[in-house]
Amino acid sequence: MPLFGLANNVRMSLDLINSKQYFSEQSVVLLNYAGLEDNDINVDSFLHVEYLYLKRNLLTQLPQSIAKLCRLKELLLESNSIECLPDELSSLVFLHVLNVNSNLLTLLPTSVCQLASLTKLQISDNRLTQLPSDLGKLVNLEILEASRNLLTTVPKEIMFCKCLKLLALDRNKLVRLPRQLFVLSDLNEVSLAGNNLQYLPLDVVRLPRLRHLIVDDNVDLHYILEVPDDNNILIISKTALHASNLTAERPAVHGLHIVLRRDLPHVVLPPEFQEVCQYGTHSVPGLQELALRAVFDLMETQPGVRSSCKDLPAELSDLLQCPSAHCHVCARAMFRSAFFAA
């Protein structure tokens, strides 16, 4: 693979950088640690480049002419001072990897969400307060790294990123996660350390390929979930109880197995739940729970019912499309009721 590199040559000759003869046949160009500023590079010099690395320079923005780099597959912009990304970025239809870690981004533009070929998005160490709902358009995305930002949640549309395998959201300000996140069956690792989480979506332990769930340093997390015996999830947490603390015998209640932290007196459940039942009692789910279960069962067997549910209030329709949780005993969908161990 043709490669051109000038890394570590501080303030190299701009004539050399902008000379088309040096890059006309190069597919990989390394310009890391080169002291480059916004006006230093002529995009026309990189028209044939597929891999462009510009780590730790002095860039504050990308030119609109970035759209000309139609062959680009990887773009590394880590450790610059970029405050925004141009709309023209959406023209990079072959881009697989975008790394803008350690910049000054406050907003992730929708142009990034139009990069249909993107498999790896690295946006850690920025100033992002939210992610766009269009994130769900990244249907080929496998890795999303967004640690050390100012995020309080992630959009529920992430459920459409069906190929997602690794999600890193450490050191944000997350207080909740959408339950829709945990319908992504390919998820292998979810890292949530150092946030403000009070609860986890209850279906997290049902993910077939999830092997690492990291929730360290979430001091307000009130419980973790008991992992089924046939699941290999490793929950990494210094503050939560582990399955070894559970009693050996438990009534066969069709509900969710939740382990409470003994040092926290109050429990914060996901907002979808309206009632809490306890193992060892004869609690019966409420009328709305029973009705939602019945409608959901009809949706599974009669396709025409699903389209009719779109006329329901948005909250109920959303619940029917993506239940709050599933029973760990019978795997039946659950909506408004949760069961706790005594």
Rank of each mutant, 00 (worst) to 15 (best):
G35V: 09
V43Q: 02
S45K: 02
L47P: 08
L47I: 08
L52D: 02
L52C: 09
L59E: 05
L59V: 10
T60V: 10
Q64G: 08
S65N: 12
A67K: 14
C70T: 15
R71P: 06
L72V: 12
E74F: 00
L75P: 09
L75G: 04
L76D: 14
E78M: 11
N80L: 05
S81Q: 12
E83N: 10
C84N: 15
C84L: 15
L85S: 00
P86C: 06
P86T: 12
F94Q: 15
F94P: 01
H96N: 15
H96K: 14
H96S: 14
V97K: 13
N99G: 02
N101Q: 14
N101S: 08
P109N: 04
P109D: 03
T110E: 09
V112W: 00
A116C: 06
S117D: 14
T119G: 11
K120A: 14
Q122G: 00
S124R: 09
S124W: 00
S124N: 12
L131C: 03
P132L: 05
D134S: 15
V139A: 12
E142F: 03
E145G: 05
S147L: 00
R148K: 11
N149Q: 10
L151E: 12
T152I: 07
V154R: 04
P155C: 02
K156G: 03
E157P: 00
F160G: 00
C163P: 01
L164N: 07
A168I: 14
A168P: 02
L174Y: 08
R176Y: 10
R176P: 00
L177F: 02
P178E: 03
Q180A: 15
